[in-house]
Measured scan of single mutants.
Amino acid sequence: HNLTITQGKLFFHYNPKLCLSEIHKMEEVSGTKGRQERNDIALKTNGDQASCENELLKFSYIRTSFDKILLRWEPYWPPDFRDLLGFMLFYKEAPYQNVTEFDGQDACGSNSWTVVDIDPPLRSNDPKSQNHPGWLMRGLKPWTQYAIFVKTLVTFSDERRTYGAKSDIIYVQTDATNPSVPLDPISVSNSSSQIILKWKPPSDPNGNITHYLVFWERQAEDSELFELDYCLKGLKLPSRTWSPPFESEDSQKHNQSEYEDSAGECCSCPKTDSQILKELEESSFRKTFEDYLHNVVFVPRKTSSGTGAEDPRPSRKRRSLGDVGNVTVAVPTVAAFPNTSSTSVPTSPEEHRPFEKVVNKESLVISGLRHFTGYRIELQACNQDTPEERCSVAAYVSARTMPEAKADDIVGPVTHEIFENNVVHLMWQEPKEPNGLIVLYEVSYRRYGDEELHLCVSRKHFALERGCRLRGLSPGNYSVRIRATSLAGNGSWTEPTYFYVTDYLDVPSNIA
């Protein structure tokens, strides 16, 4: 807008934040220059609390790290170098490059900038070799853009010569660093050979998330399962459950009422301010606690030095998902009996873990797994792929695949051998790939016309006998059925096997 004052003059007093240069501009645009008398524009009460600059400061050096910015700028000295009290560095987070010096300023003089007072450097006698002032900004957020400017702080001049310097606002972004852990990993099994893994992005990506790394490792069953005799009275049979499938998407929606109208769909109840505040506090606490764990609990591995020492970490090797089922080394339970199943799973520490690289999504279907087997899954978020990966501390989750139908069934015939004193040795093959492992066998036998009897055969007993022995049988026709019990439950009964026990007292003698 054009402003013209045809008559009258300007009068400025007691404006401590208004620089004289701005008042002189007002004289020019209003056409009143030359009308004012000496005392109409006070030299001592206008701009006496402001830094009124008329020179431009330029930054000469900028260096960044993930949490620091090192700045240096060209030296500046007023005509009387004693008038320079120091520099004021202003900075704040700036997602967009549209910041002005006066953003967030209120009537009390406060604003949204963080201000650092910096002492002037030592003055050199040689004007050509003056030290460049600077400042190291610490405690910054990774991968965050900051708006920065600097200006001088000078003393009051009796001659009211307006001098000083100020830089333009520059924008500097800190470097990326390792992201925080992925949030809320959930693993479920939808079949006997697959596990579905879902997660949420890290709360602090500290860069642009480029991919996720998912490692999985087959877990050995508890050692007590191999040692305890679950045929003993009072000892509860062990059981394991597989990871249940995901709930429906509708039930997972946030901010939804727990109660549904019987007449149909209901609208979600909005969260109160107290609920939102509580969630923010919980989120802040979780982030602080995660940072504490990362800094205190997890110790970084030592990389190899120039002395030739090897990095103890196993090298990563990509495998196809079809090879995942046989990740671990199978060892027989008892070496003397080769027909026992290889369900003991000690994992070799030198073995390469299978892994998958996930790009542009937060889910993965891990296939080719062994049925009813526990897996430990390790999830890392990465925001750099080359020249070397920059990934987060791992988040861990466990899951067990679903049982395989008929995996616990005894394959092959049940054979028998009759000894003296009416002892019958029953023999059968253990299931080759049971659900988890076989903890015991149930032997059901009966003599024709009598009630059915049951015998429990422990895992250890089966390994020693290759089956079991029935003792003290009365003469007669017998039928026997056997079924295995694994961590997933009972298998199917075998087809009945028949044998006849004679009275050993009636056996004919070869003595003449």
Rank of each mutant, 00 (worst) to 15 (best):
S315N: 10
C269R: 04
S243T: 09
L470K: 01
A381E: 00
E430S: 03
E350S: 15
C266D: 03
V345N: 13
Y375A: 11
H454A: 06
V334I: 03
T485N: 08
L237Q: 04
E281M: 15
F419L: 09
V297M: 09
C456L: 02
L440H: 14
K460T: 14
N490K: 11
K460G: 07
R376L: 15
S392R: 00
F419T: 11
N295C: 15
D385A: 09
A484Q: 04
G489I: 01
E279F: 02
F215A: 07
E389M: 15
V443S: 01
S458V: 05
D503W: 09
S344G: 11
F289A: 01
N206F: 03
F246Y: 10
L232S: 08
P312F: 07
R301V: 06
M402Y: 06
G491W: 01
L280I: 15
T303S: 08
S262P: 06
D229T: 09
V423R: 13
E378V: 12
Y292D: 03
K406P: 05
A488S: 07
D311L: 13
K278D: 14
G467F: 08
R218I: 07
E260C: 07
D503R: 10
G491L: 03
L369H: 03
G368Q: 14
Y445M: 10
S268R: 15
R400K: 07
R446P: 00
V327F: 11
G207D: 01
E378T: 14
S458T: 09
Y504A: 03
E388H: 15
S239I: 07
E258A: 07
E430V: 07
Y478Q: 03
T333A: 13
P314K: 11
S251H: 13
E281V: 08
F419Q: 15
E417C: 03
S398E: 01
E221W: 07
G264L: 14
D408P: 01
E417S: 11
A399L: 02
V345K: 09
K357N: 13
V297I: 12
T485G: 01
V296E: 09
G322A: 13
Y396A: 05
G467V: 08
G412L: 11
I366Q: 05
T401R: 00
P314Q: 06
R218Q: 15
K317F: 11
V414A: 07
G264S: 06
R318H: 06
S398P: 08
P387I: 13
T210P: 06
L453P: 05
W242A: 03
E351S: 12
E378W: 04
L379T: 06
F499I: 11
S474M: 09
L440D: 05
A381F: 00
D385N: 10
L426A: 00
P312A: 05
S283Q: 14
S257L: 12
L505P: 11
D506L: 05
E227N: 08
A336M: 13
E442F: 05
S398Q: 04
I438F: 05
E420K: 12
D222F: 06
D408G: 03
E356K: 12
V297R: 01
R218G: 12
S348E: 09
A488D: 15
R471W: 05
G472Q: 08
R318C: 06
L235F: 08
V443W: 01
D273H: 15
G234E: 12
L277F: 07
Y498F: 11
L232H: 07
F372D: 01
H425S: 07
R471M: 03
H254S: 06
E430H: 05
K271E: 03
S315I: 10
R390A: 08
P300T: 06
R286L: 03
H461Y: 08
S257K: 12
A335T: 11
A394G: 06
G234Y: 06
N477C: 06
A484H: 00
W242R: 06
S342L: 07
A407T: 12
G436A: 14
E356G: 14
A335K: 13
L237A: 08
S248I: 15
P270A: 07
S305F: 13
C267P: 02
E217C: 10
S268N: 08
Y375K: 01
G322S: 15
D229V: 03
S257D: 07
V331M: 14
P403H: 04
E279Q: 05
I438Q: 03
F226P: 12
A330L: 15
P332R: 05
E404A: 04
S348L: 09
D385S: 00
R218N: 06
G449V: 00
Y230K: 03
L232D: 04
N383C: 13
T343Q: 09
V296N: 12
E247R: 10
Q256P: 12
E281L: 09
S304K: 15
F337L: 12
R466C: 06
P387Y: 05
D273P: 15
L437M: 14
E260R: 13
L228W: 12
E404H: 06
P354I: 14
N477T: 06
T494K: 08
K236A: 10
R471T: 08
T303R: 11
P244Y: 13
S367G: 06
Y259F: 05
G472L: 09
T340C: 05
S284G: 13
F462W: 11
T272Q: 06
A395C: 04
R313H: 00
R481G: 06
T497F: 03
E430R: 01
G472W: 07
Q252T: 15
L455Q: 08
E249M: 14
Q256S: 04
V397G: 12
V439W: 12
P387H: 07
H461Q: 09
W493E: 03
S243C: 10
V443A: 13
T401Q: 01
R481F: 08
V507Y: 04
S243R: 12
K271D: 02
Y292T: 02
E350K: 14
T494N: 14
E227I: 08
S363T: 10
K278E: 03
H254T: 10
E247A: 11
S344A: 13
R390N: 02
T347K: 09
L235K: 04
Y441V: 03
S305D: 12
R353K: 04
T373S: 08
K233W: 08
A484P: 08
E279L: 04
S392K: 00
V423I: 10
K278F: 08
V329G: 06
A335Y: 04
F355T: 07
G436D: 13
S367C: 10
N360L: 08
Q384I: 10
I482W: 00
A381L: 00
S283N: 09
G308L: 15
S223W: 09
Y478T: 01
R447P: 10
R471K: 04
Q256W: 07
Q256E: 07
K271S: 02
F298Q: 01
P338G: 10
L379R: 00
R447F: 07
S320H: 07
C231M: 01
S479L: 04
V439A: 14
P338S: 09
L280T: 05
R353L: 09
Y441H: 03
V411L: 03
Q252Y: 03
V331D: 12
K357T: 09
S458H: 04
P434K: 06
Y375R: 01
V331T: 09
N422S: 11
C456F: 01
G467S: 13
S315H: 13
S248F: 12
S274T: 10
P475N: 14
P314V: 13
S243A: 08
Y504L: 09
F298R: 03
C468E: 01
K236Y: 08
K287D: 02
E465H: 12
L364R: 12
E265S: 12
K317E: 15
P338K: 05
T347A: 07
Q256T: 12
K233I: 15
N435Q: 02
N208T: 01
Q275K: 04
K317M: 10
L369R: 05
G306W: 14
S509F: 05
K361D: 04
N360W: 15
H352T: 04
L237P: 09
R447T: 11
E247H: 08
D311K: 06
L437S: 00
V443I: 07
D250K: 03
Q256R: 07
T340K: 13
T241A: 12
E362S: 06
F372T: 03
L232V: 08
S492T: 09
G207S: 02
H416P: 05
E310R: 14
K233Y: 13
V327I: 06
C468F: 09
S458Y: 14
N421S: 13
E279S: 03
R469E: 05
G489E: 15
E362D: 06
N339F: 10
N326V: 14
H425K: 09
S492G: 09
L277A: 13
E258F: 15
E388R: 08
R301F: 11
T485F: 07
A263P: 13
M402D: 09
E389H: 07
V397K: 15
R318E: 06
E420A: 09
V214P: 00
R400C: 08
N490Y: 07
P338C: 08
V397F: 11
E247P: 09
S305T: 13
E451F: 14
N360V: 08
E351D: 13
D450L: 05
R466W: 14
E389R: 09
S474P: 07
Y448L: 07
V457I: 10
N477Q: 11
T373K: 03
P403G: 01
L437A: 07
P354V: 06
L228I: 13
P434Q: 04
D506A: 13
E227V: 13
M427N: 14
K287C: 02
A407V: 12
T272A: 15
